[in-house]
Design a protein around this nucleic acid. Structure first.
Lengths: 337, 337
DNA sequence: TTACAAATTTCAATCGTTTGCACTTTAACA
DNA sequence: TGTTAAAGTGCAAACGATTGAAATTTGTAA
C-alpha cells in the first residue's frame, strides 16, 4: 500500500517540527498566521489525512461501535441496522457488524472480536440459543457500554431498548376479538426470550379483557415459516379449529395464511390472521397481512442514541442506573382480518 | 473505560522487559522455557489481550474491510452481506458497513469514511445515482484494493463480481416463451447500470432466438414496487397487453402480479410473470413467483474472497489485471408461469 | 582462572499524533 | 544597551506492541 502523507512529511518539507504542524492544523493560537497558512496549504496540496489509527492509540478510543445481531436477512433487523447506521453516521461513528446466526457459540466469539477490535461500545440482540450471558457480563466488566435491543435480559446491568411487545400483542388480539373471533390461537416465540413472554402475556390479557378463557392448547411454539406452516396444518385440521390467529412474527403469520388457503379455507372469511413486525412481506402477502408495526428503524435509532449518550458521559461512573426504553407499537390493519 | 492489561504490566510484575514478554507470548525460540511459562501464566491470569490498535499502527493494517452498499434492507444485499461476513469471519477480518441509501453524495462521504478508518480493502456496490466514479478512483489511487459487486463498472481498474445477468434474463424470457407467451414485456433497471443493460440484452436475445420481434414499447423503466405497479397498470390496460412479463427484480414482478389481480386478470392463466433475485418475498407471493436466483450469498462470498486474495498478494504490484467473476444464475420455476 | 560461544534478555527505534514544558526569537520599554 | 514579557517553535514522552542489534548472563572447555 502506498505510504500515506503524515505530519512528518509536512514538517520536513516546511522545516518545522511535527508539533508545530500538528498545532497549525488544528488552529492552535500559539501558531503564527504565516506558519499556519503555509502548513494548511501544503497539507491540502499533499492530500494529508490524519491517521485515525494513531489517534485511536493515543486516545484509547476508536469511534466505532460493535453490533452483534442474529441475522441481517430478517427485515426487522435490517431496519434496525438502518436506524443504527443513521445515528452513528451523524455522530461520526462507524459500525462493525457481527452476526451470530442464532448460534450461541458464534455469539461468544463475536463478543471477543468486539473486544479485540476495541470498539467504544456495543449494541446487542442476542441469539435464540443464548441462555448463559456471561460473555456479555465480560464486556460490562471491561466497562464497555452495552445496549441490548429487541432481545433483552433484565439480569444484566445494561440499557435496553425494546418494542412494546405487550401492547402490540394486546392490540392485535383485541382487534381479532373485535372482528368477531372467539377462539384465537397464538403462535409464540420461545418463552425464555422476553419478546416471547411479553407477547404471550399481551395475548392472554386481551382474551381476559373480553372474558374469553385462555386455552393452553391454542398456544404453540412456532416462530419460523416452516414450523408455523406445520403447526398451522395440525391446528387447522382439528374440528374445532380457531378462527383467529396471532403470530409472533410476519413469517409465521404468512405461513398460517398459506396453509389455510392450501386447506381450502378463506382469509379473512374463515380465519383471520395478525402478524408482528410489519415487514415488506406483510404488504405483499395475499391477502395483505394485518400486523403490528415494531418501528425497527426507530428502535435502532434509539438504541444507538442511548449508547452514544453513555459513551459521552463516561466520566460519570457513579452508580450506573440501567435505562429501559420502550417503543410503542402500532396496529396496521389490512385485509387478512 | 477501565485500563486494559498491557505487556508492560506483565513485564513490570515479572521484572522483565517488554520485549521479552512480547517474544514469550509468541513462542519466540530465544526465550527460555521458564520465562515463557511464567509470562504465559501471568498473562492468562490477568486476562491480557493484545491491543489491536497498537498493532494496527505498527503494521499499518487493520484487518478490516469496508463495505459500501446501497441499502441493507433489500433481501439481495443482506444475503450478500451474509456471504461477505462469513468469509471475513473465517479469515479474522471485521466488516465495517456503510450505506449509501442510493445517494451519490452519501456515497462520496462513505468513501472518505472508509479512508479515515484505514480499512485494508473495500467492497462496493454503488448507488443508482452514481455516474461519476472519481471517488472510487481515489480509493484505487491510494492503492486500496477495491472489489465491485452486482453494480459494477468496467472503466475502473478494479475487480468485479457479478451475477450472470444476461444468462439469467435469457433463461427467464426463454422460459416465458416456452410457456407460450408471444408478447413479453420487460420491466427494466436504469440503463446506466450494467445490470440494466445485461438483463435487457438477455431479454432481447431470447426473443431473437425465437424470432419474436423486439418491441421497444414493451420495455419500461420500472425497478421498484411502486413504479412497477404504476407501469403495470398502464400496460395492462392496453387492448393488446402482453401476456408475459420479465421484471428486473422480484419486487417489480410482485407489483405486476398485484396489479394484474387487481385488474381481474389471472396469473398464470392470463399473464405469466418472472422476477429476478429469488428473495423471500418471491416464495410468499401469491401465486408464488418464478424467478431467477442470483445466489447473493455466494456472490458475497466470492467478492470477499477475491478481495482477501488481493490483500494477501499486495507485494505483487506488477501490472494489475482486473478479474471479473461471473456467478451463474438459476431459474426457479414456481406457479406464476 | 580465562576465554569464548551459546543462550537469554534488554535497549532503542518505530508506527503517527498530541501536548506539557522548555527553549528561542522578537519586540517593546526603560 | 540591557531587561523582560510575549509570541512562536521545538523537544520529548506517551499511547502498546514489535524487532534488529547490542548487551548480559550462563555454560563449557582449555
Amino acid at each position: 500500500m502506498k505510504r500515506q502523507i503524515t505530519i512528518k512529511d509536512i514538517a520536513l518539507k516546511l522545516g518545522l517540527s511535527t508539533s508545530t504542524v500538528s498545532r497549525a492544523l488544528k488552529d492552535h493560537p500559539d501558531i503564527s498566521p504565516k506558519t499556519r497558512a503555509a502548513v494548511k496549504e501544503l497539507a491540502a496540496l499533499l492530500g494529508y489525512r490524519p491517521n485515525r489509527i494513531a489517534l485511536n492509540l493515543r486516545n484509547n478510543s476508536t469511534s466505532t461501535i460493535g453490533l452483534i445481531i442474529p441475522e441481517i436477512e430478517h427485515y426487522f433487523f435490517s431496519a434496525i441496522i438502518n436506524g443504527i447506521e443513521e445515528v452513528a453516521y451523524k455522530n461520526d461513528y462507524s459500525v462493525m457488524v457481527f452476526q451470530s446466526n442464532e448460534s450461541y457459540k458464534r455469539e461468544v466469539i463475536n463478543t471477543q472480536a468486539v473486544l479485540t477490535n476495541r470498539v467504544d461500545g456495543v449494541l446487542v440482540s442476542f441469539s435464540k440459543e443464548t441462555n448463559d450471558f456471561s460473555h456479555f457480563q465480560k464486556l460490562i466488566d471491561n466497562e464497555i457500554p452495552v445496549v441490548f435491543f429487541d432481545r433483552v435480559i433484565d439480569e444484566l446491568q445494561a440499557d435496553q431498548v425494546v418494542a412494546d411487545d405487550y401492547q402490540g400483542a394486546f392490540l392485535a388480539v383485541n382487534h381479532l376479538i373485535e372482528k368477531g373471533c372467539k377462539r384465537i390461537a397464538h403462535f409464540a416465540a420461545p418463552q425464555h426470550l422476553a419478546i416471547g413472554k411479553s407477547r404471550l402475556s399481551g395475548y392472554h390479557d386481551a382474551l381476559l379483557k373480553h372474558n374469553i378463557p385462555f386455552d393452553q392448547s391454542l398456544v404453540v411454539l412456532a416462530d419460523t415459516f416452516d414450523s408455523a406452516r406445520k403447526s398451522a396444518h395440525d391446528i387447522l385440521r382439528r374440528p374445532d379449529y380457531p378462527t383467529g390467529f396471532f403470530a409472533v412474527n410476519d413469517m409465521a403469520a404468512i405461513a398460517i395464511i398459506k396453509e389455510a388457503k392450501h386447506l381450502g379455507l378463506r382469509v379473512p372469511e374463515d380465519i383471520k390472521v395478525v402478524g408482528f413486525e410489519n415487514s415488506k412481506s406483510a404488504a405483499i402477502s395475499e391477502p395483505e397481512l394485518t400486523t403490528v408495526d415494531q418501528f425497527g428503524f426507530e428502535l435502532g435509532r434509539e438504541a444507538c442514541q442511548l449508547l452514544l449518550k453513555r459513551l459521552k458521559n463516561e466520566e460519570n461512573e457513579t452508580s450506573f442506573k440501567p435505562i429501559k426504553k420502550v417503543i410503542k407499537t402500532r396496529l396496521v390493519v389490512r385485509s387478512s382480518t
